[in-house]
Computed example of a mutant assay.
Amino acid sequence: MTNDTVTEHEHIVEVADRLFYERGIHAVGMDAIRTEAGVPLKRLYAEFSSKDALLEEVLRYRSGVWDAGIAGAAATAHTPREKLLAIYDFLDGWFRTDDFRGCGFINSFGEMGAVSPAVAAIAREQKERFQRYVASLVDELGAPAALADQLAILAEGAQTTAAISGSPTAAAQARAAAATLIDAALASSAKG
């Protein structure tokens, strides 16, 4: 195990998350996870009845990591506008990590969504939760509700663009576009 506070269950999830994210879901079997996690195969299956069950737990774990990252970025901001723009600052930092491979939910949905209703549902739930988070900040800002959809699409598009291009600049471009959209929405609201 990685440390005393991480349970064996959590350790397996973290290992599976890393392997699925690095190599893809289909490319990683339970034996590879067992080996990397350092647990007997029987113990792995006692914790997770199937690879699908493990994948579902991995996606829930990844959702928590994403939520914590976004919340951490917002915690440094003081206004709703700054909190919205902090999303793109968070993305910029993430895109610059050595292990960035795009959005784990988009990747999982692309690989498994057609054959796993559970994976599709978890990916949709995560995207909807992010959308609600952005919408709450837009509401706090006092801007039109449609702005939330636009800002969320910018964040999603930046993730895909950065993964495919291999360049972190998509975050800065999305942030600049978000600032323009926010300012235009606020100016339009002030006129109306």
Rank of each mutant, 00 (worst) to 15 (best):
G64K: 04
A77S: 09
A27F: 07
G24F: 11
V65P: 07
G38N: 01
Q126A: 14
E10K: 07
W66R: 13
K83F: 08
A32I: 08
D139I: 07
Y133E: 10
S188N: 08
D139L: 11
M1Y: 12
A171N: 03
Y133I: 06
D99H: 11
I12K: 05
L84G: 00
A187R: 09
S167P: 02
L141M: 01
D139R: 14
T35W: 07
T180D: 12
W66E: 14
K51R: 10
A174V: 04
S63E: 15
G166Q: 00
F109V: 06
V134L: 03
A114G: 12
M1L: 15
G157C: 02
P80K: 02
A179T: 06
A123H: 03
E56H: 10
V39M: 02
D67S: 12
T2R: 15
G24L: 07
I33S: 00
A74D: 13
L54Q: 04
V13H: 05
G104P: 06
M30H: 05
A27M: 10
V134A: 01
V6M: 14
E125Q: 11
Q159T: 09
I70W: 12
I153D: 14
A27N: 10
C103A: 03
I122Q: 05
A155P: 04
S50T: 06
G102Q: 02
W94T: 14
A27E: 15
S189G: 00
P80E: 08
F20I: 08
D183Q: 00
A86S: 03
L41M: 13
A73P: 04
L44S: 03
R129K: 14
Y133G: 09
A121T: 09
A32T: 12
V134D: 03
T79C: 03
G166P: 02
Y133A: 11
A86D: 01
Q159P: 06
L181D: 04
E128Q: 14
A120R: 09
I33Q: 00
I153V: 14
A143T: 02
T161W: 11
T5K: 15
V65H: 05
A27G: 05
D4G: 11
T35K: 11
E57P: 08
V6F: 09
T169N: 13
D99N: 09
Q159C: 15
G192N: 08
E140Y: 05
P40C: 10
A185Y: 01
L19R: 02
E128M: 14
S108D: 07
A146P: 08
E57V: 10
P40L: 12
V39W: 03
D99A: 10
I12H: 06
Y61K: 02
E125R: 13
H26Y: 14
A158H: 02
A152S: 13
F100A: 00
I33A: 00
V119Q: 03
A16W: 09
G38L: 02
T2N: 15
E111A: 04
L44N: 00
